[in-house]
């Protein structure tokens, strides 16, 4: 029984220390939350301004688009809260600090996950995600029954795990390629920038990219189609 809970207590010990280090610079921490919030809101403000002049983007109105974006932000918030370590461990491999994890008598992946958490980004993204969700949830014509709420929770858990696996894949490739930053920039960060838009507006090769290579479509687009009963891409 003790063995079962041991990883959790390890994780909490780490988190406690991490919180203390992060709170050393309070003003910086606060500004960091605001900065992340503003940066991510920029894209949303763009959508909002576009829809002041136009009615829809590819047949999706503002509420529906906000719903799509909200899933991206909510999953990302949990993602950086839990799995920042995975995102950043290619740097650890790169500068030779990875050895210390190998020497300790605990699972390497557990140590990597516990060693880092990006609280401020999580707050920034989470706030924006929640705001968008609250704005859109009631006006997209979805009946928030128990089954639907359950489906939403599973969607979010799935979205977090999909993105964490993408990170793990990129980070692990740094064992062989040493520096993978630009590859990750190219395939993950860039893709994320437009993952909030409906898949149907993009040309074919970008649709394929989002479905089969970096499967962002499964994070928000396909689940949103279930909630919104959208017929696009039906054929």
């Amino acid at each position: 029984m003790r063995k079962l809970f041991e990883p959790f207590s390890f994780y909490f010990q780490h988190s406690k220390m991490l919180t203390k280090t992060r709170m050393q610079y309070k003003l910086d921490a606060f500004l960091c939350c605001i900065a992340v919030f503003v940066r991510e809101s920029a894209g949303i403000v763009g959508v909002f301004l576009v829809l002041q002049t136009f009615n829809n983007i590819g047949g999706w109105n503002m509420q529906e688009l906000f719903f799509l974006f909200s899933i991206i932000f909510l999953t990302y918030s949990f993602l950086v809260f839990l799995f920042s370590g995975i995102r950043d461990f290619s740097n650890i491999v790169n500068n030779g600090e990875f050895d210390k994890y190998l020497l300790r008598p605990r699972s390497v992946l557990l140590q990597i996950i516990s060693a880092n958490s990006d609280y401020f980004a999580a707050i920034g993204h989470g706030t924006l995600g929640l705001v968008l969700f609250i704005i859109s949830a009631n006006s997209i014509g979805t009946d928030w029954s128990f089954a639907n709420i359950l489906y939403l929770i599973i969607t979010i858990i799935g979205g977090v795990l999909i993105q964490a696996s993408i990170w793990l894949l990129f980070s692990c490739s740094s064992f062989f390629l040493i520096k993978t930053d630009s590859l990750k920039d190219f395939l993950y960060w860039n893709t994320r920038k437009f993952a909030g838009y409906p898949l149907s507006v993009f040309p074919g090769f970008i649709q394929k990219l989002l479905m089969f290579v970096i499967p962002f479509a499964f994070v928000n687009y396909f689940p949103a189609q279930y909630f919104l009963h959208k017929p696009d891409l039906a054929n």
């Binding site: 910086d28 900065a35 503003v38 940066r39 763009g46 301004l49």
Partner: peptide
């Protein structure tokens, strides 16, 4: 640390 200021500035410029 001017990271936050820089990010906010860039967001405003991009919009």
């Amino acid at each position: 640390n001017v990271w936050s200021l820089s990010v906010i500035k860039n967001s405003v410029i991009s919009i």
